[in-house]
Protein backbone atom coordinates (compact mmCIF):
# COMPACT_ATOMS: atom_id res chain seq x y z
CA UNK A 1 0.00 0.00 0.00
CA UNK A 2 1.35 3.41 -1.00
CA UNK A 3 2.15 5.80 1.83
CA UNK A 4 0.13 8.99 2.05
CA UNK A 5 2.33 12.04 2.23
CA UNK A 6 0.98 15.58 2.21
CA UNK A 7 3.18 18.64 2.69
CA UNK A 8 1.96 21.11 5.30
CA UNK A 9 0.74 24.63 4.48
CA UNK A 10 -0.05 27.56 6.80
CA UNK A 11 -3.60 26.24 7.08
CA UNK A 12 -3.25 22.48 6.68
CA UNK A 13 -1.05 19.96 8.48
CA UNK A 14 1.77 17.74 7.29
CA UNK A 15 0.52 14.19 6.87
CA UNK A 16 2.62 11.02 6.80
CA UNK A 17 0.78 7.73 6.80
CA UNK A 18 2.99 4.70 6.24
CA UNK A 19 1.45 1.22 6.04
CA UNK A 20 4.87 -0.53 6.17
CA UNK A 21 5.93 0.94 9.50
CA UNK A 22 2.41 1.54 10.82
CA UNK A 23 3.27 5.15 11.63
CA UNK A 24 0.42 7.60 11.15
CA UNK A 25 1.32 11.26 11.69
CA UNK A 26 -0.55 14.55 11.51
CA UNK A 27 1.45 17.64 12.43
CA UNK A 28 1.09 21.39 12.23
CA UNK A 29 -1.97 23.56 11.78
CA UNK A 30 -5.38 22.46 10.67
CA UNK A 31 -7.51 25.54 10.08
CA UNK A 32 -8.89 25.37 6.54
CA UNK A 33 -12.33 26.83 5.78
CA UNK A 34 -13.34 23.52 4.31
CA UNK A 35 -11.70 20.63 6.10
CA UNK A 36 -13.84 17.83 4.66
CA UNK A 37 -12.01 18.17 1.37
CA UNK A 38 -8.62 17.98 3.07
CA UNK A 39 -9.39 15.03 5.32
CA UNK A 40 -11.17 12.81 2.80
CA UNK A 41 -7.97 11.17 1.46
CA UNK A 42 -6.81 10.51 5.04
CA UNK A 43 -10.02 8.76 5.98
CA UNK A 44 -10.02 6.81 2.70
CA UNK A 45 -6.42 5.73 3.22
CA UNK A 46 -7.19 4.44 6.72
CA UNK A 47 -10.23 2.60 5.43
CA UNK A 48 -7.98 0.70 3.05
CA UNK A 49 -5.24 0.26 5.67
CA UNK A 50 -7.79 -1.26 8.06
CA UNK A 51 -7.93 -4.42 5.91
CA UNK A 52 -4.31 -5.34 6.68
CA UNK A 53 -2.72 -3.03 9.22
CA UNK A 54 0.87 -3.25 10.49
CA UNK A 55 1.35 -5.33 13.65
CA UNK A 56 1.42 -2.08 15.56
CA UNK A 57 -0.06 1.24 14.46
CA UNK A 58 1.57 4.23 16.07
CA UNK A 59 -0.40 7.44 15.75
CA UNK A 60 1.28 10.78 16.40
CA UNK A 61 -0.95 13.83 16.48
CA UNK A 62 0.91 17.07 17.01
CA UNK A 63 -1.27 20.04 16.21
CA UNK A 64 -0.48 23.62 16.99
CA UNK A 65 -3.96 24.82 16.08
CA UNK A 66 -7.10 23.23 14.76
CA UNK A 67 -10.48 24.75 14.02
CA UNK A 68 -13.90 23.30 14.81
CA UNK A 69 -14.37 22.41 11.16
CA UNK A 70 -11.30 20.13 11.42
CA UNK A 71 -12.35 18.74 14.78
CA UNK A 72 -15.10 16.61 13.24
CA UNK A 73 -12.77 15.35 10.54
CA UNK A 74 -10.14 14.46 13.12
CA UNK A 75 -12.81 12.49 14.95
CA UNK A 76 -13.47 10.61 11.70
CA UNK A 77 -9.78 9.73 11.55
CA UNK A 78 -9.91 8.46 15.13
CA UNK A 79 -13.05 6.44 14.39
CA UNK A 80 -11.18 4.57 11.66
CA UNK A 81 -8.34 3.90 14.11
CA UNK A 82 -10.85 2.74 16.70
CA UNK A 83 -12.16 0.18 14.21
CA UNK A 84 -8.61 -1.14 13.73
CA UNK A 85 -8.19 -1.32 17.49
CA UNK A 86 -11.53 -3.13 17.86
CA UNK A 87 -10.38 -5.73 15.34
CA UNK A 88 -7.71 -6.65 17.93
CA UNK A 89 -4.82 -4.83 16.34
CA UNK A 90 -2.37 -2.85 18.39
CA UNK A 91 -3.01 0.91 18.11
CA UNK A 92 -1.17 3.52 20.15
CA UNK A 93 -2.19 7.16 20.06
CA UNK A 94 0.27 9.86 21.09
CA UNK A 95 -1.34 13.27 21.52
CA UNK A 96 1.28 15.99 21.66
CA UNK A 97 0.63 19.44 23.11
CA UNK A 98 2.91 22.37 23.76
CA UNK A 99 3.84 23.35 27.28
CA UNK A 100 1.02 25.34 28.93
CA UNK A 101 -1.40 24.69 26.10
CA UNK A 102 -4.26 23.47 28.27
CA UNK A 103 -6.76 23.91 25.45
CA UNK A 104 -4.89 21.40 23.31
CA UNK A 105 -4.53 18.97 26.22
CA UNK A 106 -8.25 19.26 26.88
CA UNK A 107 -9.01 18.67 23.20
CA UNK A 108 -7.04 15.42 23.42
CA UNK A 109 -9.00 14.41 26.49
CA UNK A 110 -12.26 15.12 24.66
CA UNK A 111 -11.27 12.71 21.91
CA UNK A 112 -10.03 10.12 24.34
CA UNK A 113 -13.41 10.11 26.09
CA UNK A 114 -15.23 9.54 22.78
CA UNK A 115 -12.81 7.06 21.21
CA UNK A 116 -12.15 3.98 23.23
CA UNK A 117 -8.42 3.85 22.78
CA UNK A 118 -6.10 5.08 25.53
CA UNK A 119 -4.23 8.25 24.60
CA UNK A 120 -0.73 9.06 25.70
CA UNK A 121 -0.63 12.79 26.43
CA UNK A 122 2.82 14.14 25.70
CA UNK A 123 3.82 17.63 26.70
CA UNK A 124 6.42 19.22 24.46
CA UNK A 125 8.77 21.26 26.59
CA UNK A 126 10.91 23.75 24.73
Amino acid sequence: MEPLIIEGTPKTPTVKFDAETGVVEIKGRSIPENSVEFYKPLVDWLEEYKASPASKTQVNIQLEYFNTSSSKCILDVFKKLEAIHKAKHDVEINWYYEEDDEDMLEAGEDYESIIRIPFKMIEIVE
Partner: peptide, 26 residues
Protein backbone atom coordinates in the same frame (compact mmCIF):
# COMPACT_ATOMS: atom_id res chain seq x y z
CA UNK B 1 -19.96 23.54 27.71
CA UNK B 2 -17.46 20.69 27.50
CA UNK B 3 -20.33 18.18 27.42
CA UNK B 4 -22.20 20.20 24.80
CA UNK B 5 -19.08 20.43 22.66
CA UNK B 6 -18.48 16.69 22.85
CA UNK B 7 -22.11 15.93 22.12
CA UNK B 8 -22.18 18.08 18.98
CA UNK B 9 -18.78 16.75 17.91
CA UNK B 10 -19.90 13.17 18.20
CA UNK B 11 -23.53 13.39 17.05
CA UNK B 12 -23.97 16.11 14.51
CA UNK B 13 -23.21 15.67 10.86
CA UNK B 14 -20.80 18.15 9.44
CA UNK B 15 -22.55 20.62 7.14
CA UNK B 16 -21.61 21.16 3.52
CA UNK B 17 -20.10 24.47 4.54
CA UNK B 18 -17.80 22.70 6.94
CA UNK B 19 -19.30 24.37 9.98
CA UNK B 20 -21.29 22.19 12.25
CA UNK B 21 -22.47 24.38 15.07
CA UNK B 22 -19.33 24.01 17.15
CA UNK B 23 -17.79 27.44 16.57
CA UNK B 24 -19.63 29.47 19.19
CA UNK B 25 -19.42 26.67 21.77
CA UNK B 26 -15.68 26.45 21.18
Amino acid sequence: LKEMYKFILNHQKISEKGGGGLGLVD
